[in-house]
Simulated assay, not measured.
Amino acid sequence: MKNFVYIVTDRNRNSLHVGMSADLIKTLEFYKQMPNLFFDSSQQLSRLVYFEEFRTEEQALSRFKLISRFTRSQKEKMIRSCNPDWIDLTIGLDFENVVMQKKLDTQVKMSFIGMS
């Protein structure tokens, strides 16, 4: 099982949120679908700008704790080292196709159940 430590931000890069997840795609889907309960749309944390993959949960937790203590400046430096333009990395994860495939799979299952 893979484990991820990630940083998401809003479109204006005002907020940086460090997180940890065993299912990065599912977590990102949650961020994108989450209603704007706490923020307006410009402040919604929806852009993946950094992530690391780990083999064990213990490794990921250790790194998560470390990055969480970083200052904003340290986090920005880390992000810029591998993502200088702060592009949304969900594109590289083929996020949209994975989400669409999940929706199609669900529709097929629902259709199959309806046929029984």
Rank of each mutant, 00 (worst) to 15 (best):
L28H: 04
V5A: 10
I91A: 12
T27G: 00
V108Y: 13
I87Y: 06
F51Y: 15
T71I: 08
Y31L: 04
S68H: 01
G114M: 10
Y50L: 11
G92R: 09
K103L: 14
D88N: 15
D105P: 01
V99K: 03
I113F: 08
Y50V: 06
A60L: 12
L66N: 07
M78H: 05
D88R: 05
T56D: 02
E58V: 11
S73Q: 12
F4M: 03
R72G: 01
F112L: 14
L48R: 02
M1V: 04
Y50N: 05
F30E: 06
Q59Y: 02
A22G: 12
V8R: 03
T106F: 14
F112H: 12
K32H: 11
L48C: 03
V99P: 03
E29W: 10
L61C: 01
N36M: 06
D94M: 09
L28S: 09
E29Q: 08
N3R: 03
F112D: 13
N36H: 13
L61Q: 13
S111L: 15
D23G: 05
L28M: 15
L93R: 03
K102Y: 03
M115S: 15
E29F: 03
G114R: 14
R47H: 14
D40P: 02
V8Y: 02
I67G: 07
E52I: 04
L16I: 01
G19I: 09
M20R: 14
E57A: 08
V8I: 13
K32Q: 12
S111G: 13
F95G: 05
Y50R: 05
S46D: 10
M100H: 08
F30T: 12
L66D: 08
T27N: 08
M1A: 04
R11M: 10
K75F: 00
R72I: 04
M1C: 00
Q33G: 08
R11W: 06
T27R: 15
S73A: 13
M34E: 10
T56W: 05
P84V: 08
F54E: 06
Q43F: 08
Q43T: 01
T27Y: 03
S81A: 14
D85S: 11
F112T: 15
I25S: 07
V99A: 04
E96C: 05
L89A: 05
M110Y: 11
S21T: 13
D105L: 11
R13T: 12
S68I: 07
C82L: 07
S62Q: 09
A60F: 07
F95D: 10
R13S: 12
I25R: 07
S21R: 03
R63H: 10
R69P: 00
Q101A: 12
S81R: 03
T90R: 11
F70N: 15
Q33W: 09
Q44E: 10
S21F: 10
F54S: 07
L104T: 05
Q33N: 15
N97I: 02
K2H: 09
L61G: 09
M110K: 14
E96W: 00
E52Q: 09
R47K: 15
R72Q: 07
E58M: 06
K109W: 12
R69S: 13
D88A: 04
P35F: 00
R13D: 14
V8M: 05
S116I: 14
M110H: 07
V18N: 06
M110L: 13
S62M: 02
H17W: 05
N3T: 00
I25G: 04
H17K: 15
Q44P: 00
H17G: 02
M110T: 15
K26C: 04
T71M: 01
H17N: 05
E76H: 04
F39R: 10
